[in-house]
Amino acid sequence: MKARVTVTLKSGVLDPQGKAIEGALKSLGVDGIASVRQGKVFDVELPGADRGRAEAALKEAAERLLANTVIEDFRVEIVS
């Protein structure tokens, strides 16, 4: 089973890297972008086919390591 965990900064948390990327896009002349927030994506492979079990494992992985829940939110999705 393949899954994806996406970690993003909570709203309200200052994201200086996102701001810098936003500025670089402006200076490149890429139009129509209002704002950018940077995050992380983890592509994870899991053995077995039990979806519930996979989701529980991914949630634990995200809570205990992949995300720092002081400043980050995460989203878990089973891809295939």
Binding site: V13, L14, P16, Q17, A20, N68, V70, I71
Partner: peptide, 9 residues
Amino acid sequence: GVLMRNAGL
């Protein structure tokens, strides 16, 4: 708490 990227990058 947490130590984030320096404000000035």
